[in-house]
Simulated assay, not measured.
Amino acid sequence: MLSPEQLLAFLGVALMITASPGPDNLMVLGVGMSRGRRQGMAFGLGCALGCLTHTLLATIGVSALLAASPIAFTALKVAGGLYLVWLGIGAIRSRGGARVDGSKALPDESLRRLFAKGLFANSINPKVVLFFLSFLPQFVIAGHGSVAWQTAQLGLVFTAQACLLFGLLGYFSGAIGLWVNRHPGVGLWLDRVAGTIFIGLGLRLILAR
């Protein structure tokens, strides 16, 4: 099982990453503002549960690499560290200005269809696959038991907190969306905080032996 320290460290970073302005949460806010709370929540929960696909792929991939060669596993972590540094630099260089467009007149869709859309969009996103393969292993501790089981637990924790945050975003989409539009600079600072976290995690894995 994950240690309390391991879990809290991962959860804190995961919450910050999920809350930072990005395509998924801005789409959840947009759907909620244009179609209503229930629709925003359905789409958001679909997006969040799409993370289960990436959790499975990361668990299988990490386990296969570790079984093949500890050196390959180390190489994955270093490559993941470089990828996180690259993401961090991009986030810090971002000019922010995130806006939510909830004014579009869109055709009505069932909650099931919106949920499926969110699930499908997240599940097939190759950038999210790459992110999970880079991010989850950073919090795996070899001495804490099965690497595969730790990776799976981390993915489930990430999915759970994404469900909570995206559900809340959908429910309060009107108020949050209008507030984001009135305070575009908030997105800039959230990007900078998330970018700093990415760079710190990446450098820690690149330099650690």
Rank of each mutant, 00 (worst) to 15 (best):
S3G: 12
S3I: 04
L7I: 10
F10W: 07
L11M: 15
V13S: 08
A14T: 05
L15Y: 05
I17G: 12
P23M: 07
L26V: 13
L26H: 02
V31C: 07
G32K: 00
S34Y: 10
R35S: 14
R38W: 09
Q39S: 13
F43C: 11
L45Y: 09
G46W: 09
A48G: 14
L49R: 01
T53L: 10
H54S: 03
H54F: 06
H54P: 02
A58T: 05
T59Y: 02
I60S: 13
I60A: 14
G61S: 12
L65C: 05
P70R: 04
I71R: 15
I71P: 06
F73N: 01
F73E: 01
V78M: 10
L87W: 05
G88M: 12
G90Y: 05
S94L: 05
A98H: 07
V100A: 03
V100Y: 04
L106G: 03
D108K: 08
R112H: 11
R113I: 06
L114D: 03
F115E: 01
F115K: 00
K117C: 08
L119P: 00
A121H: 12
S123W: 08
V128T: 14
F131T: 00
L133K: 00
L136M: 08
P137M: 08
H144Y: 07
Q150Y: 10
Q161V: 10
G170T: 01
Y171E: 15
S173I: 01
G174Y: 09
I176P: 01
N181I: 07
R182S: 13
H183N: 15
V186N: 09
G187A: 06
L188T: 09
L190Y: 04
D191Q: 15
A194S: 12
A194T: 08
T196M: 10
I197P: 04
F198K: 00
L201V: 06
L203T: 02
A208Y: 13
R209M: 10
